[in-house]
Design a protein around this nucleic acid. Structure first.
Lengths: 354, 354
DNA sequence: CCTCGGACGTTATACGTAACACTAAGGAGT
DNA sequence: ACTCCTTAGTGTTACGTATAACGTCCGAGG
């Protein structure tokens, strides 16, 4: 009660009105302009071509301006059955990568009067409530990044328009896919390492089965099949700096010839790999080359800077939102993979002759 | 038109109903339970103690369950004048710190049926639209982090309930403040460095005038005033790895005795400082100690790991949201500064005797 | 002179919810 | 027998918007 009155008074002050007064409605604008509420709705909704005279339209717009009229979003949503809100499902918001994806999506959304809400990982938000469940009536569509299949189940079951980011294009169900040309990037990265003379590779692989990591692994293996003397091992690692460190220590410390290049599934793992090398008394890139993935700030914060594949995170989000908007309007979504960039930096160099 | 039909069909499928059917409303539940819509509202709104019999309440709940009834949020908002949505204003979403703040706020919000939307920096979202402007009618309150004063102007002017994070407690206007005991943290950090024997300090300071950075500078100066032979210089730096590198190169390369400790305003600056030291052929921590601020993942990704002040980012967000909820309900918000943690790691050591 | 169709608006209604005001029945108190 | 209270609900309304369906005026064509 007190809270409600507080909110109301606050709203009033937004437009410089006296506290206690209601915010202006389309009806207020109507009486100020001397027309009916319906006309206000037509004019401000840009649906008046030929139905309202130029002069009246001007009057309405002026009155709306004077009163500081803002349409009530709740009322509009109720009337239209649409909410102009999309859900972005990400595995974890704490990653800079998904923060950028969100930013890109939010920018495009804002241009179309849409909002974006987040659903940051099933376990992150507390076990008691399923925010997706409670938000269902307030969503127009869902943009979901690559996640474990079971986490997606409840989303798939909803049948809301769904756009998938960086995930298996063969999957049926999603209205659209926004994918990256990761295979091409990995191929270029591998060629870079091969060109430097590397032949013994160890893949520090994420221990989750997201499509994106499956592709990374496959592309790396594919790129090395043509090279007769190349050798590829794989060590799985928890997705964290420390997980990368442990995996790399195992890889570098294991018996047999030491790998000369550690290809890591993301920049955090690569940072861990660099730490592992340091602990074992090896130097990067002189004794071992290390590559990352994602192109986060972290990649240039390290010494040496990481050679990495930079993903256009913001573009992914932007394109995802654009695709959702297209689907909602019945247009075909833009297709074609987004390119990734190979950033060659200090963490890779020619291996020392054995 | 087509889009609207698509959304409607999708909604229907959410509850396993045939496509084309409307989602169930409270009136549908009412007729299924053999009561009036008003009774359904009472029961599901938990306002029926003494007004509806236990038996009838059970019937209503059962019917709601069977039909998969979800209240329509738009209708509820329209009726109540409240939206159960808060705005979180952050300077940039790309930072891990604010991502964590968001996570904390969203968790608490979800527990109370609230949502959180983001307003990621005035310039970040595109110049054409002011999302705060368009969202005003759909907000119950605002949580804003420390920003430049002018960026806050339009928010302050709104008079919506406002909670400020890590900002000047003397500021009037905000309904509540959530602050960190940064002064205490800086004092402990300084004592740590003094204890190691450091006397020549250079503060790599952020070149923005947010309250939090003002406090950091002041606390550092205060902690050194009692130490007669201590010396403090300040170099301002753009808030980025490269900004930190440039500032540190200037500090370490300038004439006169070299500083033995670089106290940086955040972890990115500290990472840049480490790179600068490396470029100048100095070793961290043997030749120069470096400290960070924030305690991001970055701090432990570097080699050596950064000694830093770890801020409880998620707690900040959680407490901010809790404070906003308190204000909205007319309760006093919890007060008291949140503690920060000094994480002593490899980037600080005793200076070499001159 | 009649009517017919633009041009310009208006009236009325529905969206789904929450809450106020009311009622009807049954029992207690006097 | 009368009022008064409690229990257990119901009828109605309002929130603010968008739009379908409906007038009205007026000049032109027959």
């Amino acid at each position: 009660m007190a809270a409600r009155a507080g909110v109301r008074a606050a709203r009033a002050a937004l437009s410089g009105r006296a506290p206690g007064a209601r915010p202006p409605t389309s009806r207020d604008v109507a009486s100020a302009a001397g027309v009916s509420q319906a006309t206000v709705s037509l004019v401000l909704g840009d649906k008046w071509r030929g139905r309202v005279s130029e002069r009246t339209a001007g009057l309405v717009r002026e009155a709306a301006q004077d009163l500081g009229y803002r349409p009530n979003l709740a009322a509009r949503s109720l009337r239209l059955g649409r909410t102009r809100t999309a859900l972005l499902v990400v595995p974890a918001m704490t990653s800079e990568f998904f923060a950028q994806v969100y930013t890109g999506a939010a920018k495009v959304a804002a241009e179309h009067g849409f909002g974006v809400v987040l659903y940051p990982s099933p376990e992150g938000i507390g076990p008691a409530r399923d925010p997706f469940d409670s938000a269902r009536t307030a969503l127009d569509g869902v943009i979901a990044s690559s996640m474990a299949a079971d986490a997606l189940a409840s989303i798939r079951g909803s049948d809301l328009p769904l756009v998938m980011l960086d995930s298996d294009p063969a999957e049926t169900g999603p209205a659209a896919h926004v994918n990256l040309d990761i295979a091409d990037g990995v191929r270029r990265l591998t060629e870079h390492l091969l060109g430097l003379g590397h032949r013994r590779f160890t893949h520090i692989a994420a221990d989750v089965d997201s499509w994106t990591f499956v592709v990374r692994a496959r592309a790396l293996a594919d790129a090395l099949t043509d090279v007769p003397d190349a050798e590829l091992r794989t060590v799985r690692a928890e997705l964290s700096v420390d997980g990368g460190r442990r995996a790399a220590e195992a890889a570098l410390g294991s018996p047999g010839p030491r790998p000369s290049a550690l290809v890591c599934d993301d920049d955090f793992l690569a940072a861990g790999a660099c730490k592992a090398a340091h602990r074992l008394g090896l130097r990067v890139p002189d004794d071992v080359s290390v590559t990352g993935f994602d192109g986060l700030t972290l990649a240039t914060a390290l010494e040496p800077e990481l050679t990495t594949l930079t993903l256009p995170a913001e573009q992914v989000g932007a394109r995802g939102m654009a695709a959702l908007l297209a689907v909602l309007e019945g247009r075909p979504a833009e297709t074609g993979d987004l390119p990734v960039t190979l950033a060659v930096r200090g963490s890779t160099a020619a291996p020392r002759p054995a």
